[in-house]
Amino acid sequence: MLASFGASIAMMVPLSYGIAVRISELAPGHEEVLGYITGTAQLIYLLISPMVGIWSDRMRSGLGRRTPFIFLGTGIGLAGLVVMGLAPDLLIVGAGWVLGMAGWSISGAAIQNLMADKLPDQQRGRVSALTSLMTQIAPVLGIGVAYAVSSNTLLVFVVPGLIGAVLLALLPIIKPEGSSKDIALTSRVTAKSVVASYGFNIRKYPDFAWNWLGRFVFFIGLYFNTTFGTFFYAQRLDLPVREVAGVVATIGMLGVVAAAAGALLGGFLSDKLKRRRLFVMIAALLFAGGALVEASAWSLPQLIIGAVLMQSAIAVFATVDQAIIFAILPNRNETGRYMAVVAFAQKIPSAVAPLIASLVITIGATGAQKNYTLLYLAGAVLALLGGAVIALKVKAVR
């Protein structure tokens, strides 16, 4: 839980606040650049993630298969945050986020791989719930930390990164993974196997394929409705971008209770009832409802209601769908590889959705007023569609 919190706070504070601050400093009025920076970084990590997964599966060391990647990702992520905080122009900010995105994603993936390696089926829902809860709380508290040091741009990036690094390091120190030196390698890595690792046999693993598709569509809707959060709140509340951190933190703190309830209820109840797909559909409906509220919101109370609904929905979906994934992995000897393929269903949307969203907000826009109403409505439809695909088509899990 602490390690998940650390990876999330280090990644989400720059993504949800820090990059927007740098854009407002270096290129005010060009908020569409946020989509280009985040989309590009996600696309680059997307291309390297299967190779990282293969490397993780084949890692033989005294620290284990996953632990070296916790440390590797943390080092790369910290370096990226320092670059972003000191960057003199947006090109360097973008380069820094390529490092930051890759580093913290590698650390987060290592934690998920550990969970897939070690968790028994009857604990997958509840542990997914607890780690999901941490990823919900971390950005909210992280925004508060960033706001407290907002007078110093470098600290906005570095302080959450250092908190993340310490918490990530605690996991292998307190609970060592164990040596992987004696684990036999089942196959050789060839150019063909590397290329093949970017995909899987859809006909052989239909449940995995349908879950991947539903997750993909849901996350496009999610990123439509979260990427421009800082600019969205600034427009709807008529506030300067730098002052939005307090609003984001306040809304986030109120949403934490709903997210906690969603994650814990979804995880624990899905374990107890042995039903996962029902909760995925509930999450999609909640998210769509929250997005509709946000689309029409021009006051703080409305924004709070919409955000609370969406945060609770994201928590339920992330918790239960992760438990589904752990149950339907095609090959547990290649957990890292297949978890990287699963990550495509989130990383491709996080790369593509901001780029598309940057265009959507300009449709029918008047002057500096971007069309966030259309963006949030589109996100609602996509999230609902993604949940329906998983609920109706994944058959191996109830």
Rank of each mutant, 00 (worst) to 15 (best):
I361W: 00
P139S: 00
N152I: 14
N371F: 07
A169P: 12
F279K: 08
G290V: 05
Q322G: 11
P14G: 07
Q112E: 15
G379L: 04
G29P: 02
N331W: 13
L167F: 13
S16D: 06
S128T: 12
F208E: 11
L375Y: 06
L309H: 11
V308C: 13
G96P: 09
W298N: 15
M51L: 15
K395W: 10
S16K: 02
L374G: 03
R398L: 11
K204H: 10
S49E: 12
G108D: 14
L90N: 01
L119A: 12
Q122R: 15
I173N: 01
R242D: 06
G75H: 05
V195E: 07
A3E: 10
V194L: 14
A357I: 09
I48L: 12
R337E: 15
S296L: 14
G18C: 06
I54P: 11
F5I: 06
I304R: 02
T74P: 07
A191G: 15
L392D: 01
P349W: 02
G85Q: 03
H30F: 02
V342P: 00
G85Y: 05
T67R: 07
P301R: 14
G229V: 14
A313W: 08
D238G: 04
W97L: 08
D89F: 00
I37H: 00
S187R: 15
I356K: 00
P160S: 13
I48S: 11
P139L: 03
W212P: 08
V149H: 10
F287M: 13
S180G: 09
K347Y: 07
I106D: 06
L47W: 05
R58F: 10
D57I: 09
P50H: 03
G85F: 04
A196I: 07
K204R: 13
V52K: 05
P172G: 02
K118G: 00
A383G: 15
A345L: 03
A41R: 08
L278S: 12
L72I: 15
L114G: 02
